[in-house]
Design a protein around this nucleic acid. Structure first.
Length: 461
RNA sequence: UGCCUGGUAGCUCAGUGGCAGAGCAGGUGACUGUUAAUCACUUGGUCGCUGGUUCGAUCCCAGCCCGGGCAGCCA
């Protein structure tokens, strides 16, 4: 008999004389003449109630079916006599596949997120994490769906990169040299010409530059893959390894970029609302009471757009006293971004046209000469979820920018070639997949929306 | 990296310079349908580690280890 997933059994429209379910025991309630076993196989938040009658030859096995045990049930799917569920399974055969004794750490109630992080190998069996990772899977699918439906080409940009100059953040080194006694140059430094790639190599912090080369050939592309930052960040929204989505569009300016970002974020929210309804309701009940109203509010309203310069004006005229002073030319601090998204606009807001000095060399310089076509999408509760820009497509301006950032043209010869041969205006952005998941689920810590979090000092499992 | 905070039973936590506590989980029994079932009884402890003060330290002090939060950096 083929296995039926709990999700499908729960969606049945008629009773069935025989059904096979396999999964893990969530809880058991014993009465005198029978036991209720709640079986969950991860296919849905809700489990299937199984009734095992004490007269069954297999009934002795029920005593070994503690929370966490894996079991197999053959029986009948019938309308439930009880109130809490439409269907239940009356067992004809009940087998314990693998026992779980009293040391099984997951219980029916009262675990902290910190404790569950310590058992990352078991936490997907909990209601909350089962829901998080079903949503994660669904949204990954929705990412591809969104771009594929719009004719974007999925590009696999490299994970190992030899250019230490991608601009963003600290890099993890990739080497096969013996750290105890690396080969030395005559000057005494490490001789990386003898390393695996014959030069210094790192894990990527962004696929953008490589993505641009493909956009300047296939027009609209996107990447979706792991990204690595060696920053010593201890916050609820930073991880050393995370997944990023980076679309890049040829013949596109910043306003087209901002429009795509908004459409994309809304698509992901709408998809989760439609396809993960039960899981989102669970988050709304146990994680964030306002989750569904906030998601719906975001879907219904256009995102606000505000230039950096106007944002500075709003902040200085807010009457607030800021811990960090507000001044044109300085980075906006967390408290400023939070004020804009959570109190002033009270909805996602895209800030654009940042001071040139704050941003990387590849962003397109505006006619005023002092701002660049950059944009950040801020959402309430999380802050920056997207960062993007229109790229500098003019060769001479780009070379000037490289010089200003003290970067060598030799290192970027292929990037400059894009501007030498058939250059086009183009733009793109990066969306932090885990930050999007935090927003959609209401889960407040990035470590709880990634299966096995890597953060400074922690790479277990 | 800076500041703040925590570590007591398998889990969630209370507690005190003088015999270590509760709820849940586990065990035993009761219950004709439960829904985090309920009721009775019950097992379970290196109070993070090391050192110090003290007649006596889980409690006070110092160092260390581990976790968490905020800030910076960013997605």
């Amino acid at each position: 008999m083929p296995r039926t997933l709990v999700k499908d059994a729960l969606a049945a429209t008629a009773p069935r004389d025989s059904i096979l379910l396999q999964g893990w025991v969530r809880t058991r309630r014993d009465a005198k003449a029978f036991s209720f076993v709640e079986l969950n196989d991860g296919s849905s938040l809700k489990g299937m109630q199984v009734i095992v009658d004490a007269t069954l030859p297999d009934y002795a096995a029920v005593a070994r079916a503690h929370t966490g045990a894996s079991v197999e049930v053959q029986g009948k799917l019938v309308a439930s006599q009880g109130a809490g569920q439409q269907w239940e399974v009356v067992a004809g055969k009940f087998t314990v596949i693998g026992e779980a004794d009293a040391t099984y750490p997951l219980q029916k109630k009262g675990h902290t997120m910190e404790f569950l992080r310590g058992i990352a190998h078991l936490r997907p069996r909990s209601n909350l994490f089962g829901a998080v990772f079903r949503v994660r899977s669904r949204l990954a699918y929705a990412v591809h769906q969104f771009f594929q439906e719009r004719g974007f080409v999925y590009v696999h940009t490299p994970i190992i990169t030899a250019s230490d100059c991608e601009g963003a953040g600290e890099l993890f080194r990739v080497t096969t040299l013996d750290p105890a006694k690396p080969p030395r140059t005559e000057q005494g430094g490490v001789d990386y010409t003898q390393d695996f790639f014959a030069k210094q190599a790192y894990l990527t912090v962004s696929g953008q530059l490589e993505g641009e080369t493909f956009a300047c050939a296939l027009s609209n592309i996107y990447t979706f893959g792991p990204t690595f930052r060696a920053e010593n960040s201890h916050t609820s929204r930073h991880a050393s390894e995370f997944w990023m989505i980076e679309p890049e569009m040829a013949f596109c300016d910043l306003s087209g970029d901002m429009a795509l970002a908004e459409e994309f974020v809304k698509h992901l929210i709408r998809d989760a609302r439609t396809h993960c309804a039960a899981d989102l309701e669970f988050f709304a009940k146990f994680v964030d009471k306002d989750l569904l109203t906030r998601l719906d509010f975001v879907l219904e309203r256009p995102f606000q757009r505000c230039s950096y310069t106007d944002a500075i004006g709003i902040l200085t005229q807010s009457g607030r006293t800021w811990e960090h002073p507000v001044a044109w030319g300085d980075n906006l601090q967390s408290e400023h971004e939070r004020f804009l998204a959570e109190e002033h606009f009270k909805c996602p807001v895209t800030l654009f046209d940042y001071p040139r000095t704050l941003k990387p060399f590849y962003m397109r310089v505006n006619d005023d000469g002092r701002t660049v076509r950059a944009m950040d999408l801020l959402v309430p509760g999380i802050g920056e979820i997207i960062g993007g820009s229109q790229r500098e497509e003019r060769l001479e301006v780009l070379r000037e920018n490289l010089a200003q950032h003290h970067l060598s043209e030799q290192d970027y010869w292929w990037y400059l070639d894009l501007r030498r041969y058939g250059t086009v205006p183009h733009a793109g952005f990066g969306l932090g997949f885990e930050r999007m998941l935090m927003f959609v689920t209401g889960v407040p810590n990035i470590r709880d929306v990634i299966p096995f979090a890597r953060t400074p000092g922690s790479a277990d499992f």
